[in-house]
Design a protein around this nucleic acid. Sequence first.
DNA 1: GCTAACTGGTTGGACGTCCTACTATTGGGA
DNA 2: TCCCAATAGTAGGACGTCCAACCAGTTAGC
Lengths: 170, 170
Amino acid sequence: MPSHHPLPFDPIDRAAKLWQDRIGPAATMAAVTNIMRVQQILQSSVDAALRPHGLTFARYEALVLLVFSRQGSLPMNVMGQRLQLHPTSVTNIVDRLQADHLVERNSHPTDRRTTLVTITEAGRQRQKVATVALTDIDFGLIGLDDTQTAQLTALLTRVRRAAGDFTDPS
Amino acid sequence: MPSHHPLPFDPIDRAAKLWQDRIGPAATMAAVTNIMRVQQILQSSVDAALRPHGLTFARYEALVLLVFSRQGSLPMNVMGQRLQLHPTSVTNIVDRLQADHLVERNSHPTDRRTTLVTITEAGRQRQKVATVALTDIDFGLIGLDDTQTAQLTALLTRVRRAAGDFTDPS
DNA sequence: GCTAACTGGTTGGACGTCCTACTATTGGGA
DNA sequence: TCCCAATAGTAGGACGTCCAACCAGTTAGC
């Protein structure tokens, strides 16, 4: 169970209201704090579902990426690009997955700089049961029907695009 | 400048597409990862704007809360409730603000368990300039017009409500 | 060929978040 | 009155994220 204390009202929204008179883009502020807060809710909800399986969302995403990769292995830098993570975060995550024997580190055949991360059979199994756990809680995203979920995705994708998150491969 | 590496395509969406055939609520998964990602973008954008002023978003929010409080001081547990933070997170944040002389810790007049956090004059000044820095970047939330921003807020509010985030004081 | 710039990855440190466990204080009920 | 549950805050640790700095290997330019 996530440990968000219930709120009698939204303090940040209240702050935003106060700003409206003296500063400016309160609507934007409200959206920002909503995103921050919903992310926090989802994170703790998802992590709680994964904890019994010894995973976090970050490590789970890495496992998913490897499971769906053609060879079951990827260079670390590619993992960083796909998951949008700093190289040091990849190192951190792979360290922990490796300590759990869910992935292995292999050397690249031609480029001796790169490290290939390969998922193990145990890793595949773990990803499978973790996915079941996640689908059981519907990924922690509740309160929206299919149409609204699609709307939300569309809006957020727009933001990501505006932020230059995915540069189209032109 | 945030350090997200540009993406040629959305890997998680791709993974979600793969799941669609074999697992199920891929749309939900896509929305979840989008929220996670947008939060990350906003966080790093906002933190980058605050870094020159020696603040993070978490500490900034705490300052705002104190500035808008009637007495300029609040008990730590109240701060935790308003900011939706774990008690230990409040301790952490107040520690750092105090080290920067932006807040002070005072003892409560009647309840010796509670600690009153009081904003200093330096804290008020810092909050002011930090707010200017933040409004200058429009909180990093771009790519949406007013209508879309309102839509986004409405959708996220629905999620928060479903998660029991604000328990209406009925 | 040789040097300089670039790329892949790691280390160490800062920060925020949470959890578990603990101390101090308060307040309600036997 | 006294004891015990609830509350306020902190300490220590785990985790993920980032940055700065660094080393090893690779590639391009001269």
